[in-house]
Design a binder for these strands. Structure first.
Lengths: 219, 219
DNA sequence: GAATATTGACTGACTATTCAGTAGGAGACA
DNA sequence: TGTCTCCTACTGAATAGTCAGTCAATATTC
């Protein structure tokens, strides 16, 4: 628990002084790990600092208050998530099916889908005071996400053509992604990302059988 | 926030002394409300007691420690949830489609699907220390639930017949229910139970089109 | 030497828990 | 019916522990 994240490199002692940005990021990472390990309610500044091998006074030096640290941690997660699906969409083929496939896969990118980050997301969702905060800063992220997945489903529905209401299909896909994330946290025998992705593909195949199978994008 | 839950009846003043069981339930209810209003991390015994119009000493009198109060609150929610779907299944027609319909509807029973209870569930899920606790006491509940919905989906799949893997379909339905619950908590413009149920039915219709439409059970 | 980062002892506020005391009700007995 | 005694629920002041935030001293880098 107290292992410092940053180990000194053998022949070049870790610089005691690091750039503002580096330390801030290091403390945000420690916050995520600490919340995952101890829970939101039991997370103290000392825990966070110790996890990074630093003293708690430094946390206040860089973030002023605990609340600001937690806020910035949430904003970091939100921005990382947004950047991840945005990048995935941009990198994918422009065909609706490929776009949807990219969107579904994006959620299981190992960079954002780690146990600690899932746990931290879960903790922020659960903490009543965090929801308005999230809405205020990231509500527009979610709206963009909803719009993106809905538009793709509409295009895919036209292309099929499929008779399902594409908005409903989009929402089912979205909540399935959310539900699977939650499942990965809470289920007794947590299943792998691969298994989670298979569940999402089963859903996509049920709505868009001409484009998806239970194994993934067709063709 | 400080409104006593139990108002004195006009001509019969509220008894100062009430039965052990009544007070315990009253305090558990207050705990749910307080967690919903203030968040898990900020919930204090004084908050809980004030919400019930009682003194904080009484909480320790009845529950010994704060931890036990929170544990018992979680167990109460879990048992209420289990009893709800079990009862719904028993009351429904034995045809697989009717059983599945009962199971899907059960989650939206106004008795268990209140904003405060959703919020409390969310808080417990989010708090890392609560997950092992839940597993230990209620893991078997979840297993029974998984088995029930999986069995029903298998029967329904045979009856269709449908080509989807019924276990996957069951899991998608289950995580859709979970995801919709989460959505009711977190989305900017929270949608009604009716709208949430429609989303779940869209999912059921996608997997079992010979038994469900987007509006619900067929026939 | 100046600027900045870092430490850690300290403070003050908050809160879980304890406990000595209060009060209402239920029998026992007259 | 009155009153005495006991039991249990209940109160709230006191206690003890925790933790966020402060700050003077120190280290590091330029």
């Amino acid at each position: 628990m107290n292992d410092p994240i940053v180990k000194p490199v053998a022949d070049a002692p870790a610089p005691r002084k690091l750039s503002r940005e580096f330390r801030r990021q290091q403390l945000i990472d420690s916050t995520i790990e600490t919340i995952a390990a101890r829970g939101y309610a039991r997370t103290t500044l000392t825990d966070v600092a110790n996890h990074a091998g630093l003293s708690h006074g430094l946390v206040n030096f860089h973030f002023q208050t605990k609340e600001k640290l937690l806020t910035e941690t949430l904003l970091f997660l939100a921005e990382e998530y947004r950047a991840n699906w945005t990048r995935a969409l941009a990198a994918a083929d422009s065909a609706p099916a490929a776009q949807l496939d990219a969107m579904l896969r994006a959620d299981f990118n190992p960079a954002i889908c780690t146990p600690a980050k899932l746990s931290a997301w879960c903790a922020f969702w659960g903490e009543a005071q965090c929801r308005p905060l999230y809405q205020e800063h990231c509500g527009s992220n979610d709206e963009a996400y909803f719009t993106a997945i809905e538009t793709i489903c509409k295009d895919l529905s036209d292309e099929g053509p499929y008779s399902y209401n594409p908005s409903r299909a989009a929402r089912v896909l979205r909540v399935t992604l959310e539900g699977v994330w939650l499942d990965m946290m809470t289920t007794n025998t947590p299943y792998s990302r691969a298994e989670a992705l298979a569940t999402v593909y089963a859903c996509a195949a049920a709505f868009f059988p001409r484009h998806f199978t239970g194994e993934g994008l067709m063709g």
